[in-house]
């Protein structure tokens, strides 16, 4: 067991993947920043000075305190406080957690739908392909954000404000996952079309394997690298979509804020000069999305077989 892990580690260290990562400063910095943010979000309950969900810890007298370094700041609140008197640093840590959860959750859902439909469309072809890809075309032409806004609006109208707030996190994963599946389905379909002409698929057919086995055990593993690339970019897109929906009031409630709803609640106070409530979470959001996008760009360069193999 130990030898197997060691050899796998050695193989990884000698791979092109690791080699190009070591040589790319942007990738290293992006990865480090992302890792830091993910860890901070995961361990938010341990790191945060206060619990923003706990109403007992909030004092309204502390509302709208500026960050340290400005006049009137309280050192107990390093990034200042929001309009309800919550410590902004803690709220941002918890908010990043919510944003990341929705981002990853939505991408897992859209990867599931996209891989399933992409495989079916690409491998079976014919009517299945025509119908699935037409749906994908129409959905994409409407722009995924528009679809998400409409689905969100319908859900909010049918569940009511309070109910929607309670299950918002699952709703958002569902809405963004369903709105964005065509992106992944198209990528999968394109690589399945290329893979299914290859000899190993013919060989598997000759050996009498069933369609399902060929699709999932033989073709799917060979289409994973483009899926990996697009899934990375899609996490960034999902986080932006979530922020947009929350900003419109169709997302996370203020009692359980994500980065988007923090920006929204801060925006109401920007005219009174309290810019930090909205701009600091905004900065965190931009950095988070930017590093994921940069990693996605790097992954695309590494995994693009045309560039790699010559």
């Amino acid at each position: 067991m130990t030898t197997a892990t060691v050899s796998r580690w050695d193989r990884f260290r000698e791979s092109f993947f690791w080699y190009s990562f070591k040589r790319d400063k942007v990738a290293i910095v992006s990865f480090a920043v992302l890792l830091l943010m993910v860890l901070a979000a995961v361990f938010a309950p341990l790191l945060a000075p206060a619990d923003p969900y706990d109403l007992a810890q909030i004092n309204i007298m502390n509302s709208e305190l500026p960050p340290v370094g400005m006049s009137g700041a309280d050192p107990a609140f390093p990034l200042g406080t929001d309009a309800q008197g919550r410590d902004l640093l803690s709220t941002i840590l918890y908010g990043t957690r919510v944003s990341l959860m929705i981002g990853f959750g939505a991408v897992i859902l859209q990867a599931f739908l996209g891989i399933l439909f992409g495989l079916l469309a690409g491998y079976l072809g014919g009517k299945v392909d025509a119908i699935l890809m037409r749906i994908a075309d129409v959905q994409l032409s409407f722009s995924t954000l528009m679809v998400a806004i409409i689905v969100g609006a319908v859900f909010k109208a049918s569940f009511g404000n309070l109910m929607f707030g309670e299950i918002a996190i699952y709703m958002l994963i569902f809405i963004i996952g369903v709105a964005e599946w065509p992106q992944i389905a198209r990528t999968v379909r394109a690589s399945v079309l290329a893979e299914k002409k290859k000899e190993y698929v013919d060989a598997a057919k000759v050996m009498g394997f069933g369609t399902r086995r060929i699709m999932f055990r033989h073709i799917l593993p060979n289409t994973l690298s483009p899926i990996f690339v697009i899934a990375t970019v899609q996490i960034a897109n999902a986080i932006i979509s979530e922020a947009a929906l929350s900003f419109l009031g169709l997302g996370m409630p203020e009692t359980q804020p994500s980065l988007g709803s923090l920006i929204k609640s801060g925006f109401d106070y920007i005219q009174s000069g309290s810019w930090w409530i909205t701009l600091i979470p905004g900065l965190v959001l931009v950095v988070l999305v930017l590093v994921i996008n940069l990693l996605g760009d790097w992954l695309r360069d590494v995994m693009n077989p045309r560039l790699y193999k010559g």
Partner: peptide, 9 residues
Amino acid sequence: SIPVFLTAI
């Protein structure tokens, strides 16, 4: 990477 509403703000 910057959402449109943040640019606006």
